[in-house]
Simulated assay, not measured.
Amino acid sequence: MIDQLYAQKLNEGRSNAYVKKIHNLLSKALQKALKWGLIQSNPSKDAAPPSIHKKHKQVWTLDEAKGFLKVCEAENCLALFLVALFTGMRRGEILALRWNNVDLEKGVIHVAEALARTKAHGLKPKEVKTAHSERAIFLSPSLTEALTIHKQHQTDNPLDLVFPSKKGTYVEPRNLLRMYKSLTEKADVPYISFHNLRHTHATMLMRSGENPKVVCERLGHARVSITLDIYSHTNEEMQRKTAERFDQNFWT
């Protein structure tokens, strides 16, 4: 019956990833029922959800990222996109960020909220979804300097937002995306989704040989295995370089 459900959803045009989410949720529910003694076995363990062929995340090269930031500086919007590229924060986390969660002296951002759209109240900050998403992200010297300058140029800011709109309210996410697309065109760099700035940050860290545990904590992943799974192609590059370094160090 479970396999028939998966086949039905696929025939309806649902993606493999969507059906895999159904499988994961169903498996957890049945496992809880097994623990409570309501069933004798978990039938989802014998079901066959569709496999997911993961595509490599499209990211910028170092030169492309630098070219983009150069245009951002010329357009007086450098700080926001520096935060995106230098911290790996999600769009909602950036737009909900308040100065009371930014410690410029210690050089750290405390991620506690994310901007979300609600039917009742429109754009509204909410607590981040998981305990792992609530995290401290340490800042590089150049980012700390950029945020310091950005704060000095702010005037009226009733919501204490790091990146308010011109009216002092939350920035409409669609307006941010329009601005972002315009900047990529001016910089003449390949268009990637705003979320892929997060992937660009993580990929650069992984390729530089950074500890995956540190990358995991900066991104707010629950487990290192999730980070390594998402950036498996980058992890392969790291493994190859490690083998080459061992060989070089051994014989020299």
Rank of each mutant, 00 (worst) to 15 (best):
Val215Met: 03
Asn42Lys: 09
Phe163Ser: 06
Leu25Pro: 00
Lys9Cys: 09
Phe86Ala: 10
Thr227Arg: 05
Leu219Pro: 03
Ser182Val: 03
Phe138Tyr: 15
Ala202Asn: 02
Glu73Ile: 00
Pro141Gly: 05
Glu210Ala: 14
Lys21Phe: 03
Cys72Arg: 05
Arg91Pro: 01
Ser15Arg: 05
Asn76Phe: 09
Lys241Met: 14
Phe194Trp: 07
Arg207Leu: 15
Val162Asp: 06
Gln248Arg: 15
His221Tyr: 01
Ser133Thr: 06
Leu177Tyr: 14
Glu93Cys: 05
Phe86Glu: 08
Lys106Val: 03
Leu38Cys: 03
Gly220Trp: 01
Gln248Phe: 15
Leu115Tyr: 05
Lys119Cys: 02
Cys77Ile: 09
Gln31Lys: 15
Val19Cys: 08
Ala243Asn: 09
Glu145Ala: 13
Phe86His: 12
Glu113Trp: 07
Leu38Lys: 14
Ile52Thr: 08
Lys66Gln: 10
Ser140Lys: 11
Trp60Gln: 10
Gly92Asp: 02
Cys72Trp: 04
Tyr18Arg: 01
Asp63Met: 09
Lys66Asn: 08
Trp251Ile: 10
Pro164Thr: 04
Leu147Lys: 13
Ala131Asp: 14
Lys32Phe: 15
Phe250Gln: 11
Gln152Ser: 15
Leu26Lys: 09
Gly220Leu: 01
Ile137Cys: 04
Tyr191His: 15
Lys66Ala: 08
Ala7Arg: 14
Val162Ile: 07
Leu62His: 13
Ile52Gln: 09
Ala47Ser: 15
Ala65Asn: 03
Thr252Pro: 04
Asp247Arg: 15
His132Ala: 15
Leu228Thr: 03
Arg117Val: 07
His121Gln: 12
Ala112Gly: 04
Lys32His: 14
Ile226Pro: 00
Ile22Leu: 15
